[in-house]
Amino acid sequence: MSRTVFLLVFRSPLFPAHWALWIPSADDKNVGKVIEVDGSVHTGFEHSIDPVFDLSKTTRTFVVIKLGEISDDTVVDSESRIIDPIEQVALSVPAPGPTLNPVASNAPPKAPVQLSNCQNWITKFVAELVCRNLLDASANEVVQNAPKN
């Protein structure tokens, strides 16, 4: 059996969209696992995994984009903190650190500034899933063409 994996794109007219990976549970297509990094370019990001995220209760504007299919044995539907294979891959991709100095910072200027955020991380995470043959290579193209705002 296989499970469908989606990219969640939380749209924003002013800032880069927030991206997360979404895997609906086998029992309820509104509830599932969200894998993402949370934070900011000022403070850096941290891995975040919510095994029981209820998509029907979110109030933010979002788009759901199919990335592909993964083997059912790579995902565990559980509130327990069993780290399943897809989470292991997510945790192996480092979350971005701070990439933007505050205005009042005494840090030397970086040239040029390369901002790294959740979109960069999802791109690397999906590429790693493809590299490990957990997702089809077409998922990389889907991510490249996803809405950025």
Rank of each mutant, 00 (worst) to 15 (best):
residue 3 R to M: 10
residue 4 T to M: 02
residue 4 T to R: 01
residue 5 V to S: 02
residue 6 F to I: 01
residue 6 F to Y: 13
residue 6 F to K: 04
residue 7 L to A: 02
residue 7 L to M: 03
residue 7 L to W: 02
residue 7 L to C: 03
residue 8 L to C: 07
residue 8 L to T: 07
residue 8 L to V: 09
residue 8 L to Y: 05
residue 9 V to Q: 04
residue 9 V to I: 07
residue 11 R to M: 13
residue 11 R to Y: 09
residue 12 S to G: 07
residue 12 S to K: 03
residue 12 S to E: 08
residue 12 S to Q: 06
residue 13 P to L: 14
residue 15 F to M: 10
residue 15 F to T: 11
residue 16 P to A: 01
residue 16 P to T: 02
residue 16 P to D: 08
residue 16 P to S: 05
residue 17 A to R: 03
residue 18 H to Q: 12
residue 19 W to S: 12
residue 21 L to W: 01
residue 21 L to Q: 01
residue 22 W to G: 03
residue 23 I to T: 06
residue 24 P to T: 03
residue 25 S to F: 01
residue 25 S to K: 00
residue 26 A to E: 15
residue 28 D to K: 00
residue 28 D to M: 01
residue 29 K to Q: 14
residue 30 N to S: 15
residue 31 V to F: 08
residue 32 G to D: 05
residue 32 G to H: 01
residue 32 G to C: 03
residue 33 K to N: 10
residue 34 V to C: 11
residue 34 V to G: 04
residue 35 I to D: 02
residue 36 E to N: 08
residue 38 D to R: 14
residue 39 G to L: 11
residue 40 S to A: 12
residue 41 V to D: 10
residue 41 V to L: 09
residue 42 H to M: 15
residue 43 T to V: 15
residue 43 T to L: 14
residue 43 T to M: 14
residue 44 G to N: 10
residue 44 G to E: 11
residue 44 G to S: 12
residue 45 F to E: 12
residue 46 E to N: 11
residue 47 H to A: 06
residue 47 H to Y: 10
residue 49 I to A: 07
residue 50 D to Q: 10
residue 51 P to S: 14
residue 52 V to C: 12
residue 53 F to W: 10
residue 55 L to P: 07
residue 55 L to D: 09
residue 55 L to M: 13
residue 56 S to H: 11
residue 58 T to P: 05
residue 59 T to K: 11
residue 59 T to A: 13
residue 61 T to V: 13
residue 61 T to M: 12
residue 63 V to A: 11
residue 63 V to F: 07
residue 63 V to T: 15
residue 65 I to L: 10
residue 66 K to I: 00
residue 67 L to D: 00
residue 67 L to V: 02
residue 68 G to A: 09
residue 68 G to F: 03
residue 68 G to E: 00
residue 69 E to T: 00
residue 69 E to L: 04
residue 70 I to L: 13
residue 71 S to D: 15
residue 72 D to Y: 07
residue 72 D to C: 07
residue 73 D to W: 07
residue 73 D to Y: 11
residue 75 V to K: 02
residue 76 V to N: 10
residue 76 V to Q: 11
residue 77 D to M: 06
residue 78 S to K: 05
residue 78 S to A: 08
residue 80 S to K: 02
residue 80 S to F: 08
residue 82 I to E: 12
residue 82 I to D: 09
residue 83 I to F: 05
residue 83 I to P: 11
residue 87 E to N: 02
residue 89 V to D: 14
residue 90 A to E: 02
residue 91 L to F: 13
residue 91 L to A: 06
residue 93 V to R: 02
residue 93 V to Q: 04
residue 95 A to K: 09
